[in-house]
């Protein structure tokens, strides 16, 4: 396999990872909560997209906005009803709580959807350029992932809600004094995190088979992306995602694909120790 193919594979994968992790990163950065539900949110988004397509023939592009909105609602409620009550507690409490909630959601999904791998097959063929081949559905997924991540960046910078989220992240107390309803903003942030997870799941369902057994792997990828890129920012997730995509693609080529995950985790541990703010991370900046 030549170097061009490896790099393109890495970038395509990286764009998907960025979209997968950006919501997780936002929640961690703003709420200081490690959301263990994130992996299940992704799988839920993927399953809903699959069943809309499989049972009702709805094209993923059509169902994606609805799936994402539904997950926003679920995320908002989870934060509003549960996580908000312990949001200032130590990490052990919040992490354990979201893990407990994840066990419930995971169980519901395995009962209703079973663990069979599901995939939306769009059959778009493959594309060749400069000797590099790439399935079109993957390119399509990458474009969609980048577009959504870009949209989130735009919304965070330009909308009132986006500015409010950034304000809460920088200084919770000051934001309260400015008349921002912090609990509401927290719930919205968590909702946006779930929304992005749902959208990422919808995209994933078009590219890879989705199954409940993958929730742990998705969470793992989200950890790695966040730590490599830097927490709580869209550019951080993008850089981290692309970096992880390239790391996996390159190390997969040299050491075999079964080791690419290990290398990703090792890079993450290394970055944690030498530069815990991540490659582009800066505290208090979106």
């Amino acid at each position: 396999m030549d170097i061009g193919q490896i790099l393109v594979n890495g970038l395509v994968l990286g764009a998907l990872y960025a979209c997968l992790a950006v919501g997780f990163s936002l929640v961690w950065g703003v709420l200081n909560v490690i959301n263990m539900l994130h992996g299940s949110f992704i799988v839920l988004g993927g399953y809903l997209t699959f069943f809309a397509w499989h049972s009702f023939g709805i094209h993923p592009l059509v169902s994606l906005p609805f799936v994402a909105l539904l997950l926003f609602g679920i995320g908002y409620l989870v934060q509003y009803l549960f996580v908000n009550k312990v949001v200032t507690a130590p990490v052990l409490t919040t992490l354990t709580l979201t893990f407990g909630l994840d066990m419930i959601l995971y169980n519901i999904m395995t009962v209703f959807f079973s663990a069979t791998p599901r995939r939306v097959t769009l059959d778009l063929g493959t594309l060749s350029f400069f000797g590099i081949t790439m399935p079109v559905d993957r390119l399509f997924g990458m474009a969609l992932a980048l577009a959504l991540t870009g949209l989130l960046y735009y919304v965070m910078r330009k909308s009132r809600i986006g500015r409010a989220i950034v304000a809460v992240r920088m200084d919770r107390a000051a934001a309260t004094l400015m008349g921002i309803r912090v609990n509401h903003i927290y719930a919205i942030t968590f909702g946006v995190g779930a929304l992005m997870a749902g959208a990422a799941g919808a995209i994933f369902a078009m590219v890879f088979p989705i199954t409940t057994n993958l929730t742990g792997m998705y969470i793992g990828k989200a950890f790695v992306v966040c730590v490599i890129g830097g927490l709580g920012s869209v550019p951080g997730a993008l850089v981290g995602g692309l970096a992880l995509g390239l790391i996996e693609s390159i190390s997969g080529h040299f050491f075999g694909p079964q080791h690419s995950l290990t290398v990703g985790f090792l890079v993450m541990l290394f970055i944690l120790l030498v530069k815990p703010t991540g490659l582009v991370g800066k505290r208090g900046y979106e």
Partner: peptide, 26 residues
């Protein structure tokens, strides 16, 4: 690992589990 605190320590310790599992598997 203990140079890390809070969330970073938690994530780092989870990563250790994953790395161990992956190394043993491969």
């Amino acid at each position: 690992l203990l140079r890390l605190k809070g969330h970073y320590f938690a994530i780092g310790s989870i990563a250790v589990v994953e790395v161990c599992r992956l190394v043993i598997s491969s």
